[in-house]
């Protein structure tokens, strides 16, 4: 079943010079039990999309979409409060810097207790404090924290980022969400801790069928841990499909450059040889090129590219480029 189905989502920022389109007609679907990656360089709009889904962007942002449905239900027909209620119940989110998104003034126990919704409790009111505490401890065990006593009375600043991130996951799974959005969940962590966290996320996906949207600026990380992939450049969706298929034969010049820039994906490249690199840099929101936003940096650009390419589909593989690297006669 398709859980999340978004079509042509546009996110615009109000500025004195008018609206700036930070995210331009992006599609995103996530099925039950799927782990989808969302990659793009910093500033490409990944966090904006995540925040728009969970409804935490402020009033300066204008969000529109042709479709925004959850588990078959059309959310666009509902009021903002009704949307938030459904999303709040079924979708949880974790962020890049866990210690910053936790309450610095409360011990871990209090924060965990608060994260457990009443609907998860079975006892009568007099048994609830005890049950809640038991559940809080069980949550810590589930994320691989054995020594719960030492953790429960600590404050976030006293714990390493890796432990904080595990606690964030514990809090996120307390309500048994159907979808977990993980926005750069391991960027601030050490590499062995990163590996542990990905194993943890994968186990929740396998055991509980929880879907995951894994957001990162690193293709290596996302490639290893996802089944499907969406690639963003500068607020535009450039390619989407199965991770393995995209890595093997990308259609879009940007995806191609991304893959070639990672030495691990280029086994035939001798050590110390130059990596493939696009020239120039990602434009700022104030200087977005018209049409295909990769245009000024794209090795294949032609004059047609000043028109925004539409998203095309070849079986399960989506791409938006006038001159794709394969699959189409030019």
């Amino acid at each position: 079943m398709i859980l999340l189905d978004i079509k042509n989502m546009t996110i615009e920022l109000e500025t004195p010079e008018g609206l700036i389109r930070a995210v331009d007609k992006v599609n995103l679907t996530i099925r039950e039990g799927e782990i989808r990656g969302l990659v793009g360089e910093s500033g490409s709009g990944k966090s904006l999309i995540a925040k728009a889904i969970v409804g935490v962007l402020n009033k300066r942002w204008h969000i529109t979409a042709d479709r925004f449905s959850w588990a078959g239900q059309d959310l666009l027909r509902l009021s903002y409060e009704e949307q938030r209620k459904i999303i709040g119940r079924d979708i949880a989110m974790i962020y890049q810097e866990p210690s910053r998104s936790m309450d610095p003034t409360a011990p871990i126990l209090d924060q965990l207790l608060e994260a457990i919704p009443d609907s998860e409790l079975e006892s009568r009111w007099w048994g609830r404090p005890f049950e809640r505490r038991k559940k809080a401890i069980a949550l810590l065990h589930k994320v691989g924290i054995r020594d719960h006593q030492a953790i429960l009375n600590s404050y976030p600043y006293q714990l390493p980022e890796g432990v904080c991130q595990k606690i964030m996951i514990a809090m996120a799974i307390a309500k048994k969400p159907k979808l977990l959005i993980a926005d750069e969940p391991t960027t601030a962590l050490e590499s062995t801790t990163q590996a542990q966290l990905f194993r943890l996320l994968a186990s929740f996906n396998q055991l509980k069928g929880m879907s995951i949207l894994l957001i990162s600026h690193e293709l290596e990380t996302v490639a290893r841990n996802t089944q499907t992939l969406s690639v963003l450049y500068c607020g535009q969706l450039v390619e989407a499909g199965e991770t393995a298929a995209i890595l093997k034969s990308p259609f879009h010049p940007y995806t191609d450059a991304l893959i070639k820039s990672v030495p691990e994906f280029q086994p035939q490249l001798a050590s110390k040889q130059p990596l493939y690199a696009l020239h120039g840099s990602i434009p700022t929101l104030q200087h977005l090129p018209i049409g295909c936003r990769l245009g000024p940096r794209c090795p294949n650009a032609r004059k047609e590219c000043v028109k925004t390419p539409v998203l095309e589909r070849l079986q399960n593989h989506y791409f938006s480029c006038h001159f794709p690297l394969q699959g189409k006669k030019t």
Binding site: A257, P274, S281
Partner: peptide, 17 residues
């Protein structure tokens, strides 16, 4: 460590060169 991929590739190439 924290550089975006296309930038990282540019800087790596510069250092190697």
């Amino acid at each position: 460590t924290a550089l975006d991929p296309s930038l990282r590739a540019q800087i790596v190439n510069l250092l190697l060169e």
